[in-house]
Design a protein around this nucleic acid. Structure first.
Lengths: 362, 362
DNA sequence: TTATATTGCGCAATCGTTTGCGCAATGGTT
DNA sequence: AACCATTGCGCAAACGATTGCGCAATATAA
């Protein structure tokens, strides 16, 4: 009796305190259970539409859940079920058109299935990328979708993901050596198409402003370029090929070198639009007409390529589709964990968008 | 004895099974505890550098943690501590320059403090925005940073966030009515500066291609425009003001209307760069010289504004700083939950970037 | 009518960490 | 020597939801 009195007193004071500080008590399934004289098991099953619960009880549970303002705690659920409904995303940076388009597509697709995405940026740093992987694994993500940093060569950390049984999907930048699902484009063929187009426009000395060849996609682009030159019997010269970060400044610097050549190129194919832009700027400054003196083609179909004058011919990578397919590849893995044998290697066709910068023939 | 025998047997078979399927057993603090003949309490404290644990024990714990390949489970920790180290982000869409820049900045800033960010997109839909809020709250995020969808007028859902005691920071698009921390720019003053600049360039009939005025930022821009006109004794005419979504097509359509006017404007100030671009396109098509016939100014300083010809004068919003400040405002709230009284309303200065499209005077 | 399914729900363990409290051993103070 | 403070660690209960198992009560079949 004494004890009861004390408890009631305590309860009373607690309530006053709660009211005073306007603390909103979290409503849990236990509260719903108490209100209906049930157990939390039943409430949980009712909310999850378990077949062993009567329709009547389900209604009652859902009703009072609403009345009490119940809000589920996904963390608790995730801990128990071993499934967080979170997908980790690792990208070099968020503020580029390509990556942000992919992010948008992945987000849109996965939100339909009830997943949220955690976005992390490597800023092209290998170290940061490793930190991101750890952080995502510790957060118990159900999968990771990643595009590798430029720096990343060692892939031990990515094996860690697989070792944890977490599905991994790589897009765009990725190594074949890594035995995982991959979504990308046919860089080799795209390059080939570019050169073919330039050849058809009458160009015979085609320079290539390339990315660093230790990255597979840029290596493939160089190979496509070289093979196409060979096919069309065009000169393949050291001085016409370069490697860089493909920024605007890089394009500018390389273009300046090219213009110093005794035997100037009549076309420039840059493996990135920003480098192409740099080249265009230098051409303009030197009163060299694009495309009449030199034709120009970029890569990625950045929005600005269609807006500037002259508009720049480029390669459309279908970034939104890459994102959607990456998301769906992950979903496929999650929904069929058994058929873990066959890898998905999706290589998308690209589209050559011909614009003013390479239209020599009207 | 019998029992023990049975258990050992079971254990044995389980181990074989594990080995067979190559299942990696999750290492928990319990395993570390068992290995060192400690309890999980001690292990937990040791890993968290609790002062009540001897240095010797800490070393031992950390050592075997590494040896066993221990990986913490943030979900469990979050559940117990009531802190997830996750921050929710709600933006209209990820693939715009402004928002992706903000995302990048927020991500970079918060990752330093050990937070991960969950990104959700409203796609300008009020309904989706509400779903996002719910989803984020259920995921137990420690805070939410949001920019409202165009559609969003009713803010009841945002009050739900505050009711849950979750810090909320709004940036860019937000209502004053909502009593929360806010980071944005001075839209009124920016508009004023634009008109002032155009006036100084000799323009006397200035049209405004505006956004929908039910969104505060666009309303403020209109007000700044009007007040500046008044100050400089310029004509304020219905026909010179419009409302739209500020897309390229909108800019085009409105420009065509403006060109039909008997008394054409000599300057156009668009509240968005894409609308400005549309106007520019139409002007070019009609052989109207920008800036000689009509001066043009946009808003947002999208990357393309500096790349096209003529380059477009615009307003730089410092998106990266907005992101950083939004992140820091959140951190401030989290670290000082007590001083919940004073709201942060940060209004950043913008910068008028004068380019070719509005340079009448050399 | 008896045997067997099915339905409806509760018990209690569990996911992996954290943390208030308690207890013993040691150290330091008068 | 008696007393208190500190140090080092364990006990056990949380956090909130899920789930295998078990036990009645009812429904169905034989």
């Amino acid at each position: 009796m004494r004890n009861y009195q004390k408890d009631a007193n305590l309860d009373n004071r607690l309530h006053k305190l709660i009211k005073f500080f306007d603390i909103k008590k979290r409503i849990t399934i236990k509260d719903i259970a108490k209100a209906l004289n049930l157990t939390s098991s039943t409430v949980s099953r009712a909310l999850n539409d378990n077949s062993r619960i009567s329709e009547k009880t389900k209604q009652a549970v859902k009703q009072t859940a609403k009345e009490l303002g119940y809000e589920p705690n996904y963390l608790a659920s995730a801990l128990r079920k071993g499934k967080s409904n979170l997908v980790g995303l690792i990208i070099p940076r968020a503020n580029s058109y390509f990556f942000s388009s992919v992010v948008k597509a992945i987000g849109d697709r996965l939100s339909i299935e009830g997943y949220n995405i955690i976005i992390t940026q490597s800023n092209e740093s290998y170290e940061k990328e490793c930190q991101n992987i750890e952080s995502l694994l510790y957060t118990q993500v159900d999968g990771i979708i990643a595009s590798l940093a430029n720096e990343t060569v060692d892939l031990e950390y990515y094996n860690k993901i697989k070792a944890n049984g977490v599905p991994l999907v790589i897009f765009d930048r990725g190594e074949d050596s890594l035995n995982v699902d991959y979504i990308g484009i046919d860089d080799y063929l795209s390059s080939f198409k570019v050169v073919e187009h330039l050849y058809n426009q009458g160009c015979r000395r085609i320079a290539h402003i390339g990315g660093y060849r230790h990255t597979r996609i840029y290596e493939s682009r160089v190979e496509g370029y070289i093979d196409a030159l060979t096919k069309f019997n065009l000169p393949l010269e050291e001085s016409l090929i370069s490697e860089s970060n493909l920024k605007v400044e890089d394009g500018r610097a390389i273009m300046e070198e090219l213009l110093k050549l005794p035997n100037k190129p009549d076309a420039i194919y840059a493996a990135g639009d920003f480098a192409a832009l740099g080249a265009l700027q230098v051409a303009k400054e030197n009163h060299i007409s694009i495309p009449d003196d030199i034709a120009l083609v970029g890569f990625s179909n950045e929005p600005f390529t269609s807006l500037i004058t002259p508009s720049i011919t480029s390669i459309e990578q279908h970034s939104e589709m890459i994102g959607r397919l990456a998301a769906e590849t992950f979903l496929d893995r999650i929904n069929n964990p058994d058929k873990a044998v066959k890898l998905n290697k999706i290589v998308l066709d690209t589209e050559l968008i011909v614009r003013e910068s390479s239209k020599k023939l009207k």
